[in-house]
Design a protein around this nucleic acid. Structure first.
Lengths: 118, 118
DNA sequence: TCATTATTCAACCATATGGTTGAATTAAAA
DNA sequence: TTTTAATTCAACCATATGGTTGAATAATGA
């Protein structure tokens, strides 16, 4: 099972918290790309995108391969799955909630049969 | 299907990006709690925790119910599922990647049988 | 060799974030 | 009614973040 240190989770979620970075990740889903290519669609400087890429890299979400003067970025999906797994734990909440509801209703029925005084 | 506006995703992931807030969410998984109760385990002021709670509330991850002077916080799991769903899209990446690899290998085999000149 | 291209580095700036303390508000308890 | 308790509001502070511009570095192409 995938487990991440708090530190890593913080980095990953911080990385995902920016719309530009999410867009970059979506872009990389199709194909790897160079920094300049990644920057093209955005109304911001190449430098800004370069920084975003570094954040994604720092979070381990993206891998960089330098070929000559070009840097190719590719998605690194493993940590995203880990982050996703963390979120998944919340799904348990629903079943727990339903369990509690059921218990509540059962107690309620029992109470009706042999009521304790208020 | 759960779909979220960019804005909402930003709020959710920003909320998740802080370890204190993640701890609060985990705590609320067991049971609802008041602000003071939530604050107890942390080495920071009640005010700080109060702020964190407000962030979680703003992201829609937590619901507040005021009873008298006490504020009870409870998990609101729906948006977490949505955020999780967003992450899930990345799983597609693996299959795509494998598809491409397969295509590559198939082309390679075909190329061997009837090579095009370089 | 020289100009161009791809990228990062460095300094800077405005705003956001995560924390503090102290006062205000409101409800409960004595 | 007076005190105590649960919470937020407001002001403040240090640091982080997301952006800018300009210069540096290094590889490619002419």
């Amino acid at each position: 099972m995938v487990e991440l240190k708090e530190e890593a989770l913080t980095q990953i979620y911080s990385a995902l918290a920016d719309p530009t970075r999410r867009a970059i990740l979506l872009r990389l889903q199709h194909q790897e790309a160079r920094v300049t290519e990644l920057a093209a669609p955005f109304a911001m400087s190449l430098n800004a995108v370069s920084k975003h890429v570094r954040v994604l890299e720092g979070a381990g979400l993206v891998r960089r391969e330098v070929r000559g003067r070009e840097h190719f970025l590719a998605l690194e999906p493993a940590p995203l799955e880990a982050a996703s797994a963390w979120l998944e734990t919340y799904r348990q909440f629903w079943s727990q909630r339903l369990d509690r509801l059921e218990t509540f209703l059962r107690d309620k029925r029992a109470e009706k049969k042999s009521p304790r005084r208020k």
